[in-house]
Design a protein around this nucleic acid. Structure first.
Lengths: 139, 139
DNA sequence: ATAAACTCTGTAGTAGTATACAGGGTCAAC
DNA sequence: GTTGACCCTGTATACTACTACAGAGTTTAT
């Protein structure tokens, strides 16, 4: 039989079976084909999609945002200009996240270095890491 | 009077008043001083702390992880070795996030470029972005 | 041909993270 | 000295993202 059962893709993506059905309900993956006995059968490629979702979630994207990210490639109907604008807005979002994380990492690295000896930990301020950033913008 | 009321720090940090009290209950900020009439009064520096929390949440850290991050600098009692190990583990986490986001950003940038003309959007695969990464590790 | 291990739909429950409200006290200003 | 904007505690509700059944059908292995 061509295709994977739900437990196979769930296992392959490292998530639960119920979560796969949940994502289908939420529109994050397309409803798959069904066997004559009504079992879902998935193409291999859905494992990739599910892994993407898992990783993106770990990066602080909500399911709604992930849906938007995924739709950037799958919506040939949408106006090019609109897609382009959405894409660029996502790129900016991601750039902001990268800058924040980079700053945080630098602070932790200097913390790691400076506390190697015996300086008091409380002198190494991680708080400043995200402070000097991009203002009071939303989110 | 020295210090800020709860609505001032909430406003300054861009979060709600109830959220500030919630973070206090959860141990993310210390219980502040009180006026004789039992009002909370916060030092300016708590705005920085609350902003850090907001930004870190946006980067995919849970409140529990943020608590750990904040405690890295505030726990001079903890054994240096333990703190050092925790710090290094956080640094690795963050490095992974940065790599994932960088890959995602690259893909979106090429998507943005290649869809400038008229190529079908569906040909630009964001799915691969997080795929060739660091294996099937947890999370 | 039966038991174990899967699948289905549908509904309910959980954890994490806020938000809202009720009932009551406090402060500033007119 | 009363009105409106604050603050308090405590409880309840909401939203997101799962996770766990219940009750019933299917597939696989023995």
């Amino acid at each position: 039989m061509e295709g994977l059962t739900i437990s196979k893709i769930a296992g392959g993506a490292g998530i639960g079976i119920e979560t796969v059905r949940f994502y289908e309900k939420e529109g994050l993956i397309d409803p798959p084909a069904r066997t004559p006995s009504n079992y879902r059968i998935y193409p291999e490629s859905d494992i990739m999609r599910l892994r993407f979702i898992r990783r993106a979630k770990n990066l602080g994207f909500t399911l709604k945002e992930i849906k938007e990210l995924l739709s950037l490639q799958l919506d040939p109907q949408a106006s090019k200009a609109e897609v382009k604008q959405q894409t660029e807005s996502k790129i900016a979002d991601i750039g902001r996240k990268i800058r924040d994380l980079t700053r945080m990492k630098e602070v932790l690295e200097s913390l790691d270095a400076c506390c190697d000896g015996q300086g008091p930990t409380s002198e190494c301020p991680i708080l400043g890491a995200l402070e000097t950033g991009h203002g009071l913008d939303e989110n």
